[in-house]
Design a protein around this nucleic acid. Structure first.
Lengths: 315, 315
DNA sequence: ACAATGGTGACAACGAATGTCACTGTTTAT
DNA sequence: ATAAACAGTGACATTCGTTGTCACCATTGT
């Protein structure tokens, strides 16, 4: 095995083991201890954060920030990655440590001049409009960590009306419409709730409350659970062809679209009592493109809203 | 200079030059031609797409798909990139060639077992909700290319009502609300227009129409230009505190928010005649949180829409 | 035909990588 | 205190990979 290959495999081996002795590696790779020692020195110079201690129970250790064996990309791949990162620039806060700018620089530096030009030109020619985030959200990383490790955390939560302190067990985090949200099990209400991350003002570990088993629940299937024990109404809405297109832009869990052959269609689904107001606003936006057949509660809610607005302009 | 270093520099040199002879490189690197020849063979094996021809005016060439010198990332960086790519998965169509899946695999393979687990767990715990794209958009790449190289292209454009054929010169492309759009100068209307990319059914190069000079116009500053020569109305809308928060989620060019000390605020701006209908719908959605003071045309448009909907439910 | 280019094989010379060995130094268990 | 387990260094011979030289072939354009 060539030296270069051995070094690459050493990086991986070392990352996997985290703790090892020179003798071990020498045997595994079939080389002398002296060689491994020399390799360790090279890895250190390459940036792998190695640490060693003599004595029995001593040996080598890798510290947190591991370095991966180098990966070769094609130019197209580099451009694609560059733009994937570029597309995230509207997010001020992300749940990762890394400065994306530094990654972009890494790519930028290895690209040849003409490709840099290409990227520079593309910069102002492609965009992914997302809603721009207004403020920094400080606890994303902790929330994500708690979701992954299924820990219970204690948060200070501040809405416009009031502040509260509660223990929650996060299911995950997601970004939508320029805001980060955190669905979680709330030990104060003993139910699932969605929290707005920017309203979380402090995060502490809660070691007293034992976590409940949510390992099978994640962002994709959480709706099945949350919707239990709620009053729901059967929804039936007729849509024109334009209405269908509008619906396709934003779908909702529990609401399903059926398209007829003539181009029209209808929505069937279940909506909960607390969502009535939301759906009323939502279908007002459709104008003539949607006709609600039921529930009557939704129609009433909508009429009320319409009259309310009209009153504003008819003095 | 060590062999490894020379190979890396060769990759870059070769990408920069695109065309070169063995003798040239031998001189530049101060090694024999034989060595360079052996290096070229190695580069080929590494995946650099080299092509050579004997004879005068012959020499080496690099083909399109260039390979970059390997880059070493830290584990955190790899995770961050992995998720930047993951965040784009809602887009079925992207203007890049590369299969993002294959890049993800590249990273995934170099990561050690425990980090893979971490990523697997994160997969269902972080999400960037964007509106899911419904259909494939076939011409994104051509449109972007035309925007970068400022070429005039001829398109078949199909709206719901009618089909047309026209020549346009794209300014760029952007994704918004799950659709791709292409602002461009339209030679049929002799003005700037925004086209929906999924309605573009064919793209051909138009070599007869000479391109106009749009090099200084791109996605960020195009509004200055497009709004010229249009009938506009001065907009004035009062907002409650909730209204302000709603507006922050989506801002519009030409509409500016002012916040008062007491928490209320107002919008000032210019809106064009053709956008009246859009803004009417938009402010209906605000309900009581917005009060339009002007223009009167917008209020009328809004009233009309409201009555229209109410009529649907009052038989 | 000749010059300019890539391409191959053989071999000697050089230099990098490796193994061996002798030695140093630290920590821990007995 | 001693021994065992570990890292670490320097010197040297050995091995293996890299390089340069040279001879020679193949292709192409002038």
């Amino acid at each position: 095995m060539s030296k270069a290959k051995r070094l690459n495999e050493l990086i991986m081996m070392v990352n996997r083991k985290k703790r090892f002795t020179v003798g071990e590696l020498a045997q595994e790779f079939g080389v002398s201890k002296r060689t491994i020692l020399r390799d360790m020195q090279e890895l250190s110079e390459m940036g792998v954060p190695l640490y060693s201690e003599p004595g029995p129970h001593g040996g080598y250790q890798v510290l947190n920030e591991r370095i991966l064996p180098p990966i070769a990309f094609s130019e197209n791949e580099a451009i694609s990655i560059f733009y994937a990162i570029h597309a995230l620039r509207h997010y001020i806060s992300l749940p990762f440590d890394t400065e994306y700018e530094s990654i972009k620089k890494k790519f930028y530096l290895t690209l040849s001049g003409d490709v840099r030009d290409k990227i520079d030109q593309m910069k102002d020619r492609v965009d992914f409009y997302a809603i721009t985030q207004q403020e920094e959200v400080p606890f994303l990383k902790q929330l994500l960590e708690a979701a992954i490790e299924q820990k219970v955390i204690n948060i200070d939560y501040e809405t416009i009306e009031k502040s509260s302190n509660r223990s929650i067990q996060p299911i995950g985090i997601y970004a939508k419409d320029g805001k980060w949200y955190c669905p979680a099990y709330c030990f104060l209400r003993n139910h699932y709730r969605v929290f707005r991350c920017d309203r979380i003002k402090q995060v502490k570990e809660d070691e007293q409350t034992p976590p409940i088993n949510l390992s099978e629940i994640h962002l994709k299937n959480r709706f099945n659970l949350i919707d239990k024990n709620k009053v729901t109404y059967p929804l039936h809405v007729e849509l024109t062809d334009k209405g269908i297109e509008k619906f396709k832009k934003a779908s909702y869990p529990g609401v399903f679209l059926h398209v007829r052959e003539d181009g029209s269609g209808y929505l069937i689904g279940e909506i909960s009592e607390e969502d009535l107001s939301f759906f009323a606003n939502y279908f007002i936006d459709y104008g003539k493109e949607a006709l609600i057949n039921g529930p009557i509660e939704l129609i009433d809610c909508m009429k009320e809203k319409l009259h309310e607005i009209l009153k504003l302009y008819c003095h």
